Amino acid sequence: MTDQQAEARSYLSEEMIAEFKAAFDMFDADGGGDISVKELGTVMRMLGQTPTKEELDAIIEEVDEDGSGTIDFEEFLVMMVRQ
């Protein structure tokens, strides 16, 4: 866990972390443990947004600390705390 990830967790109660985990699992449609650009786009479109591929890439790049091209749960928490 990076310093950013530990800091993000410090702002959240266990209840909030559990709620974010449920949301993360909804995004992680294939159950792979991370959110891909495609999965992020699908959920955002379900919520009425129309992000471009470039916008989706930028969202993932902003929090993808390990350079995997996807968002894992710890990175997702950082993203949610920043919102």
Rank of each mutant, 00 (worst) to 15 (best):
Glu55Ile: 12
Gly31Thr: 03
Asp72Lys: 14
Glu65Val: 12
Asp25His: 09
Thr52Met: 12
Leu40Cys: 06
Ala22Val: 15
Ser68Phe: 13
Ala22His: 15
Gln5Ala: 08
Gly69Ile: 02
Arg45Lys: 09
Asp66Phe: 11
Ile60Phe: 06
Ile35Thr: 00
Met79Phe: 12
Ala8Lys: 08
Val63Ser: 09
Glu61Ala: 15
Asp64Tyr: 14
Glu62Asn: 06
Ile60Glu: 12
Glu55Arg: 08
Ile59His: 11
Gln4Asn: 14
Arg45Met: 05
Glu15Phe: 12
Glu75Gln: 13
Gln5Ser: 09
Gly33Gln: 04
Ser68Val: 12
Ala18Asn: 15
Ala6Gln: 09
Phe27Tyr: 09
Gly32Pro: 03
Val43Pro: 00
Phe24Thr: 00
Glu74Gly: 12
Leu47Met: 06
Met80Asp: 00
Glu14His: 08
Asp28Val: 10
Ser36Ala: 13
Asp57Met: 10
Ile60Arg: 03
Phe20Leu: 05
Met79Gln: 12
Met44Asn: 00
Glu54Ala: 12
Phe24Arg: 00
Ser13Met: 01
Met26Ser: 14
Ala58Ile: 05
Glu74Asp: 04
Pro51Asp: 03
Lys21Met: 02
Glu7Ile: 14
Asp25Glu: 08
Glu74Ile: 00
Gly48Pro: 00
Ala23Glu: 03
Met44Lys: 01
Glu14Phe: 11
Glu54Tyr: 07
Glu61Gln: 06
Phe73Gln: 01
Asp72Tyr: 07
Leu40Ile: 04
Phe24Val: 00
Ala22Gly: 08
Pro51His: 09
Met1Lys: 14
Leu77Ser: 04
Asp72Arg: 13
Ala18Asp: 15
Val81Phe: 03
Val81Gly: 10
Ser13Trp: 04
Phe24Met: 00
Phe24Cys: 01
Glu74Phe: 03
Ala8Pro: 12
Met16Phe: 03
Phe73Lys: 02
Glu61Met: 07
Asp34Trp: 13
Met46Gln: 09
Phe73Leu: 03
Ala58His: 14
Asp66Lys: 15
Gln83Tyr: 05
Met16Tyr: 04
Glu39Phe: 09
Glu15Leu: 11
Asp72His: 14
Ser13Val: 01
Tyr11Ala: 12
Gln4Trp: 08
Thr42Arg: 06
Ala58Cys: 07
Arg82Ile: 03
Asp34Ala: 06
Pro51Gln: 04
Ser36Ile: 01
Ala23Ser: 08
Thr70Gly: 04
Glu7Asn: 06
Asp72Val: 06
Ala18Cys: 11
Ser13Asn: 11
Val37Pro: 04
Leu12Phe: 14
Ile71Ser: 00
Gln49Tyr: 11
Gly32Arg: 11
Met16Thr: 13
Met80Arg: 00
